[in-house]
Amino acid sequence: MSSPQEDPRQTPTQRSFAFLVNPTSGGGAAPAAVVTVARILRDAGAVVDVTYSPGPKATLDLVAAAVERGDVVVSVGGDGMLSSIAGEVARLGGVLAIVPAGRGNDFARMLGLPESPEEIASVLLEAAPTPTDLLEATLADGSTRVVAGSVYAGVDAQTAALVNRLHWLPKKLQYPAATVKSLATFRPTTYTVSIDGLTRSFLGATVVVANSGYYGKGMHIAPNASVDDGELDVIVIEAAGRVGMIRAFPKVYDGRHVDLEQVHVFRGRSVTVAGSPPVAMGGDGEPMAALGAEPVRIDVRPGAVRILR
């Protein structure tokens, strides 16, 4: 059998797919998203296997088995689901695809992926496997975490935690409501940020180390970011008055926030961040260990994983 580096099942019409589904993504939207896409693929002659995520360790075992068979590994869920398997697909040399079915779907938005089942199926059948950058975060305890979109600390990490408690709100209101609440209660942190060896300090509300330009369900936090350039965009938002920050918040959706005086944008390949006092940290909607005096290092992994896009 050909190695996974050489093909995901030769020609597109012969592709086989291993769908890994997070059944809780998007408030339970993921299973419904699978049905139509899988039917279209099977009607086109593709082999489709669907598995609902049985837990982190078992899911990685499923990834390994799928890559060994030459299947395209399909993440069905949100950004957290994608990041949970992207690193393993990259390590094994497999091919990854995305069926966006989460609350945010920000990495899919960055890639310009469609939303309709028919268009998604067309991408899976016809798109070429394209090398795509990832992030790798090395935490203070020495453990590592691969992330597709961004790692962030401060107000935005607190916002992500609040979103998980606002399911009673309509989806389109969850992130804005959580953000406003976080901005109204945040306490500034002194961030020490080193980018390719050059160190700066800021009294700030948040720091974002971005591969993807989008996070928080459509916020264009890093408007110049690219997943193909082998670089990271670092966004530092200095502490300002709460009322001013709340008023400026809508600018994040179209990227105009980068013109504000308190917003700084940098670029580099390797970034370390520390915070005092400690502050919440997250990656692609999932919580990570708190950011404290011991720095976290984030490196770009250029072209680490091939994605159908």
Rank of each mutant, 00 (worst) to 15 (best):
Q5C: 03
E6K: 10
D7R: 04
R9N: 07
T11M: 06
T13C: 06
R15D: 01
S16K: 05
F19D: 02
N22M: 06
G26N: 04
A29K: 15
A30T: 11
V35C: 09
V35H: 12
T36A: 15
T36C: 11
R39L: 11
R39M: 11
I40S: 04
A44G: 11
A44N: 08
G45M: 07
G45I: 08
G45S: 10
A46K: 00
V50W: 01
A58N: 03
L62H: 10
L62A: 09
L62E: 06
A64Y: 00
E68I: 00
E68N: 05
S75A: 15
S75Q: 02
L82H: 03
S83K: 02
I85K: 01
E88G: 00
A97V: 12
V99G: 06
N105R: 07
N105E: 04
D106V: 08
M110G: 15
G112R: 13
S116K: 10
E118D: 12
I120A: 14
S122A: 15
S122F: 07
T130F: 02
D133F: 07
L134P: 01
L135P: 02
G142H: 11
V147K: 03
V163W: 01
L169V: 01
L169R: 00
K172Y: 13
L173D: 08
Y175I: 12
Y175A: 02
T179H: 04
S182T: 14
S182C: 10
P188Y: 01
T190N: 14
V193F: 09
S201A: 15
L203F: 02
A210F: 07
Y214K: 09
G218H: 10
H220L: 15
P223S: 13
N224G: 15
S226Q: 06
D228K: 15
G230T: 00
L232A: 08
I235W: 03
V236R: 01
I237V: 11
E238Q: 14
V252P: 01
R256C: 08
R256I: 10
H257L: 06
F266K: 05
R267A: 13
R267D: 07
V273D: 05
P277T: 09
P277Q: 08
A289S: 12
A290Q: 13
G292E: 11
E294Y: 03
E294H: 12
P295T: 02
R297Q: 14
D299A: 10
R301Y: 00
R306Q: 03
L308Q: 04
